[in-house]
Design a protein around this nucleic acid. Structure first.
Lengths: 202, 202
DNA sequence: TGACGGTAACTTACCCAAGGGTCACTTTAC
DNA sequence: GTAAAGTGACCCTTGGGTAAGTTACCGTCA
């Protein structure tokens, strides 16, 4: 009789709803950071209310961890595969970028979760994020070592610095990409190839 | 009679206390972001309580704006001076870095205020930060244009991308620097010169 | 095939701690 | 004695988190 039906199941299985919430959470956490993101806003994006979010994920940390693990696993996997394939040191950056762009074409905020400075300094999230960053750093340091030694530079501190700047470059490229939804992964890769070729001769 | 003397003036003039609070605020905002920073914590760092902070700055936004203006003015000024001096396109990045390192050697968190993703999306802070970023972007785009055209690249979208990546590189270098308090501005500049020379032949 | 009960999906309405913000007041310097 | 520096104690909103109840789906049994 009444037209308002705000309550009751909407027939969506838990698994599917959870996936929606993780996607929405990733975007919101990526956009506003852990500290700035709001649970009720994340629920609202999916057309659902806060208690359901808590029933499924337990807490803000639980949701963040779910988002972080999805992003971190996909990222480390993709980079590991690319690095394992090997190649010339000055070709690796572009290959890794291509892998990242392809993997996260429709999930561009995911990368930011690993480097969110607003997460609590201690606890599960900090530990998990640090672990993913450590794994990525290992790859970055490996690539930087190959690149610098091929140029006659061997200072380990230089290598660390280059590795960190590299992750910052990825960060910037992804932020730039987020602001340009029309640019797909292939266009992004082509642009980077053109620029690196022109600037560095790589 | 009582040994506890928690109240009463401590003989510090307002101007000086304000400067202390801006320094503490810059560090705390830079570390935790606008959303994650706490006013009582900032006051505590200076050995003072919250009401004094509010008496001097009015609000959290007021304090943030004071920190932001100090950082933004010093930064844009330093970069403008360096850019105005001119030079070879591939020498400019290092010159700008040297200027930034020197200016912010004892204030390393300042840079982050301009790029804090946790500030409210609208309002005075957003406007002021956007304005500073726009000014810096203008310099970055200018430098990128000179650099890319000298290499035969002219796509304006490429130039925008390079400009944004450049600001990201500065970001990463400063983050890396924050974690290594022993490295002073001169050492940092020398390191960057060595790396850029080795990697790019600049 | 239809009633029916159990379970999963979902909500309203609430609690509570944290943190931004304020008031009235106290103390010291000059 | 007055003005500026400074504080304890409070208010109130925001947002994380919860309790209890409501609705729809779905398998089962007559």
């Amino acid at each position: 009789m009444t037209e308002s039906r705000p309550v009751g199941t909407k027939g969506m299985p838990r698994e599917e709803r959870e996936a929606q919430l993780v996607v929405a959470g990733t975007e919101e956490f990526g956009r506003a950071g852990y500290a700035g993101a709001s649970m009720v806003e994340i629920a609202r994006r999916v057309g659902v209310t806060k208690p359901l979010l808590y029933q499924y994920f337990g807490s803000k940390d639980g949701l963040y961890l779910a988002c972080l693990h999805r992003a971190g696993d996909r990222l480390t996997e993709g980079v590991a595969t690319t690095m394992a394939a090997g190649g010339e040191p000055d070709q690796m950056p572009l290959k890794v970028l291509a892998a990242i762009f392809t993997t996260f074409d429709h999930d561009r905020y995911a990368w930011r979760l690993l480097r969110d400075p607003t997460v609590p300094a201690t606890g599960d999230i900090a530990a998990a994020a640090a672990d993913y960053r450590r794994r990525l750093d290992t790859f970055a340091v490996l690539g930087a070592t190959q690149l610098l030694t091929s140029r006659g530079l061997a200072d380990p501190v230089d290598i660390e610095a280059v590795a960190q700047v590299w992750t910052g470059v990825v960060d910037s490229l992804i932020s730039w990409w987020i602001d340009r939804p029309g640019e797909d992964a292939a266009a992004m890769t082509a642009r980077c190839a053109r620029i690196m070729g022109g600037l560095f001769g790589w």
